[in-house]
Nucleic acid binder design. Structure first.
Length: 254
DNA sequence: ATGGCTTATTGTATAAGA
């Protein structure tokens, strides 16, 4: 099966890119972040016509996540259970016996800001929930925009980013805590070219100069690890007119 | 360089992203 995650930075704007990409790439499952639309505006009909079931949880202007799937989805969960949150950042479903969790982890804005502390609380709640999910779903995959570059090699200029969000020790530690549950960064299960990133700033010609960060990830549980056969980043959508600032990250399993 | 884009909004400037 082929899985992917993509922060589209407004599905309203990016729907043509998404439909083209689904047609060309034929993933079984595509997780979207930052749909930035209420559910009544979500393009269920267009996606159904393209061959995809969809589940979505959204809000106006900010956040919003969706799972698109060629296969039926059951056991649907919206938001992290037992975590008070007015932001729409998580949707999950069982697909072909695999627990698929799509997450848009908070950005954090600036280290030690209120939003940063929210990010850290949010990561704790996510980690606690994952721990219980893994008990009942040994085959689990967590796809999304983590807003964390796990290591220095995931940042175009580590020295310039010291002490910033996306790379701060506390954020990286939170990422390691998730791995500690028995999850694996699928991208790093395979040999990759240096300076591989999933996001580039719109400003300063970030993409052309490859000033990017690898902050979108697909983590897999122990039970899925041995089934992984390929992981890569598809930079093509980032080269289109009026692109998202993120590009799709993919994983293929046997 | 605290931004140089891009998105969205009961807009005509502001907030937020990363």
């Amino acid at each position: 099966m082929k899985f992917a995650t993509w922060n589209v930075n407004s599905l309203n704007v990016r729907l043509p890119h998404v439909l083209d990409w689904l047609r060309d790439s034929q993933p079984d499952v595509l997780c979207l972040q930052e749909t930035k639309q209420e559910d009544v505006k979500f393009p269920y009909a267009e996606l159904e016509a393209a061959g995809y079931h969809a589940i979505h949880i959204g809000q106006k202007t900010y956040n919003g996540v969706a799972i698109l799937s060629r296969h039926p989805m059951t056991n649907i969960q919206r938001n992290i259970p037992n975590f008070e949150d007015d932001q729409q950042r998580v949707v999950a479903a069982d697909i072909n016996g695999i627990r698929i969790i799509c997450a848009y982890i908070p950005n954090g804005q600036a280290v030690d800001s209120d939003k940063y502390h929210y990010k850290m609380r949010w990561l704790v709640a996510l980690t606690e929930w994952l721990k219980t999910e893994l008990v009942t779903h040994p085959k689990l995959m967590l796809l999304g925009d983590y807003n964390i570059a796990p290591e220095d090699r995931d940042c175009h200029d580590p020295s310039a980013w010291v002490g910033q969000i996306l790379v701060s020790p506390a954020e990286r530690n939170a990422f390691q805590n998730i791995l500690g549950l028995g999850l694996h960064d699928s991208f790093r299960l395979f040999e990759q070219v240096d300076k591989s990133y999933s996001w580039w700033d719109y400003r300063m010609m970030g993409f052309r100069r490859n000033f990017g960060m690898r902050i979108d990830h697909i983590l897999v549980s122990d039970a899925l690890k041995s089934l992984c056969i390929k992981a890569h980043i598809d930079k093509a959508p980032r080269m289109l007119e009026r692109p998202s600032d993120h590009t799709p990250v993919l994983l293929e399993t046997a």
